[in-house]
């Protein structure tokens, strides 16, 4: 009981988020112009940060194998193009991807814990997680119980994250806050701290399954949270915006925001990822434009 009160007290003791201020700050950072060699470097970094994702009911072994092959060699026409950060699939598809990625350095992420709603009993969620890790996933993307969080049962959410973290074993744990359902920036800040206190290795914005996904202001609030958390505890936590990031321009805005908010330490695929699928093709088209000097077209990149 005291533990519950402590958690509630510390989460509600966090300073409130200035909504207008954070939106203005995010909008101001989005106006930077990144060109030529800096742009080329940004595009390559963004490619290395992509979690190439397919989370469809219609995913087949063939489709995820093709996606994994693309993760290894995103641009078959250019051997200097780096590989992506990870492939992200449903647990049932993990074995097929693991075959392709074995020994490549590309991570294999899997969503677990009754993704995307998180509305399932804890033992089902834990079994889901253990299955995914056993099948070869080295990163687990879990969803928090938004219902419990919004009802104020922070201890329930906290204990769930702790239990899933334990079930993960050596695998990295990314905790999806589903910010589109949290309603306020204050809640985003509280949920970020809650997840980090419970042992998350990454905090992630969204499942991509609700209309409002990653936005710049939400990501800014989360970046501030990981920065303050490291200052307080010494432990560094990664951030992953997911959903709705479709263009190179968007991706570069996020990179600028990292650099200005938390600094170079997070400008690395180990600490920042983009959850995306269509973003990669746009990055490749922009990359081709820079290397060849003429505009690229979508006909020359795979559909996935």
């Amino acid at each position: 009981m005291t533990a519950t009160l402590d958690l509630r007290a510390s989460l509600h003791g966090l300073p409130g988020v200035d909504k207008v201020g954070v939106e203005a700050r995010a909008a101001a950072l989005a106006t930077r112009s990144v060109k030529t060699t800096a742009k080329a470097a940004a595009i390559d970094l963004a490619i290395r940060m992509v979690d190439l994702t397919t989370l469809e009911g219609a995913d087949t072994p063939g489709k995820v194998r093709a996606l994994a092959a693309k993760a290894l060699r995103p641009d078959p026409a250019d051997p200097t193009c780096p590989h992506v950060g990870a492939v992200c699939v449903y647990p049932a598809m993990v074995p097929y991807v693991a075959e392709v990625l074995a020994g490549s350095g590309v991570h294999l992420a899997s969503v677990a814990t009754a993704f995307p709603s998180g509305q399932a009993p804890l033992d089902v969620k834990l079994a889901d997680t253990r299955d995914a890790v056993a099948a070869g996933a080295d990163e687990i993307d879990m969803v928090i119980s938004r219902g419990a969080f919004l009802a104020g049962r922070y201890d329930h959410v906290f204990e769930e994250i702790v239990a899933v973290k334990e079930a993960c074993g050596d695998a990295h744990l990314k905790v999806i806050l589903e910010t589109g359902e949290l309603a306020t920036y204050d809640n985003v800040r509280r949920a970020s701290w809650l997840a980090m206190l419970a042992g998350a290795d990454f905090i992630k914005t969204s499942t991509g399954k609700v209309p409002v996904a990653a936005t710049l202001p939400v990501t800014l609030v989360m970046l501030e949270a990981v920065r303050d958390f490291r200052a307080r505890t010494g432990r560094q936590v990664g951030v992953k915006p997911a959903g709705g990031i479709k263009t190179t321009k968007d991706a570069i805005k996020y990179l600028v925001m990292i650099n200005e908010t938390v600094g170079d330490d997070w400008l690395d695929p180990a600490w920042f990822r983009f959850g995306a699928s269509s973003l990669l093709n746009d990055l490749l088209m922009q990359r081709t434009k820079l290397t060849t000097g003429h505009y690229a077209g979508p006909d020359y990149f795979t559909l996935d």
Binding site: T288, G293, H294, Y295, A296, G297, P298, D299, Y300
Partner: peptide
């Protein structure tokens, strides 16, 4: 020239 070299034209 930009249109002539454009891959989507």
């Amino acid at each position: 020239p930009w249109l002539a070299s454009h891959d989507d034209v």
